[in-house]
Each structure stands twice: as structure tokens, then as C-alpha cells.
């Protein structure tokens, strides 16, 4: 009564199958037996970054992290917004932040988008930047640090791309590393 397994998984002896086991391609014969339509949606967009994020990205190009201050609640919003979602009022002024901060939370990711195991784990997390309140929404990678070392509350600093390589993108910062490394 043994059935052929319907899926093949990239089992890793240490960790077991990834959360989304990969299927196998149908054979040409099987595919021909299944009436189906294959279509590739053509949906392309060009989103305006908007007033606040445009200035933020320009700042990154110059090696600066810019936030917007709301005098209503006293928070500095980074990434910046032209309005404060808590007070529902326009934000008031641009503030340059030193770039340093502490790790708020992090995850060590061992799988890529297709749930394949990656060679080097990817360290992602959120950062409370100095000068901005906690849980403001600043997210990035971590580098020059092992998964074992990385911890909540760890002081970190940005590692910038060289000036000539910066294009006005959040990736103008390569990653954050432990401060003073």
C-alpha cells in the first residue's frame, strides 16, 4: 500500500524540512493531461516616494539619516512622515539623527524566499535610533556580528556604502554593526 511521496523536500539533517516543502515539476506527460492556463501578470508600477521619503532618500545619499519631528507628541519619526499618525497633524521640522541606536528586535533567517537553506544566515531586525522613540519603524540588516552575539539592546551603528556608490536608497546603508567595531 506504500504510496510514492508526492513531494520532495530539501531535508537538512540538522533542521528537518523547511516550512514550505518544495513540490516537483510535473512531467511533460502529466502536464499535458491537466487542462490549464499559464499567464504571467504584467503589473508594473512607478510609485512616487512622496515628500518625506524623497527627502529621506536624498539624505541617505549624503550620508545623513533624517527624521521629522512632531511637536504634538514630541516624537521624531524615522523613516520620516509628513504627518503624525498618532496626533493626526502635519509634522513640524527636519531633524538629523546621529545614526547610532540599539537593536529592538532581530531574527536570524536561515531560508530564502523559496524556503531554500542559505549558506550564511541573514540577520534582519529593527533599530531604535538615538534621538527617535522606540518602535518607530526603522528596519535594516546586521553585519560584522555573529547570530550568537546579536541581542536585543545591543548598541549598533550604520556601515555606509562609499559616497560614490550611494544612489538615494535605504541600501546606501549596507547594514548596522555593533558600535565601535
Amino acid at each position: 500500500m506504500a504510496h510514492e511521496p508526492r513531494t520532495q523536500t530539501h531535508n537538512d539533517e540538522r533542521f528537518g524540512p523547511p516550512p514550505n516543502p518544495q513540490g516537483r515539476r510535473l512531467s511533460a506527460q502529466e502536464e499535458a493531461q491537466l487542462p490549464h492556463i499559464i499567464a504571467k501578470p504584467r503589473a508594473r508600477y512607478a510609485w512616487a516616494a512622496g515628500i518625506a521619503i524623497s527627502a529621506f532618500l536624498e539624505g541617505l545619499k549624503r550620508g545623513k539619516i533624517l527624521g521629522r519631528k512632531c511637536v504634538g507628541c514630541g516624537r521624531v519619526l524615522v523613516p520620516p512622515r509628513m504627518f503624525c499618525e498618532r496626533c493626526f497633524r502635519p509634522t513640524d521640522e527636519w531633524v538629523e539623527l546621529p545614526g547610532t541606536g540599539v537593536v529592538e528586535t532581530f531574527s536570524v533567517s536561515y531560508i530564502d524566499t523559496d524556503a531554500n537553506r542559505v549558506e550564511e544566515p541573514i540577520l534582519v531586525g529593527t533599530i531604535a535610533l538615538d534621538g527617535a522613540p522606540p518602535h518607530c519603524g526603522f528596519m535594516h540588516y546586521f553585519g560584522e556580528v555573529s547570530p550568537e552575539e546579536l541581542h536585543i539592546g545591543m548598541p549598533v551603528e550604520p556601515v555606509w556604502k562609499p559616497e560614490g556608490e550611494r544612489v538615494g536608497s535605504i541600501l546606501d546603508i549596507r547594514y548596522f554593526r555593533p558600535r565601535g567595531r
Binding site: H36, R42, A43, R44, Y45
Partner: peptide, 21 residues
Amino acid sequence: SELLTFEHVVELAFDSVYEAP
């Protein structure tokens, strides 16, 4: 104005196996 392929997205609103082809 930010959708660059308006016509194709409209086409995605057609029945995918009968009308869209």
C-alpha cells in the same frame, strides 16, 4: 498614474481561462 500597465491589469480582471486568452 503610478500604474504603468493599466491595460494589462484590466485584462487580469477578465476570466483567466476563457476571456483573457
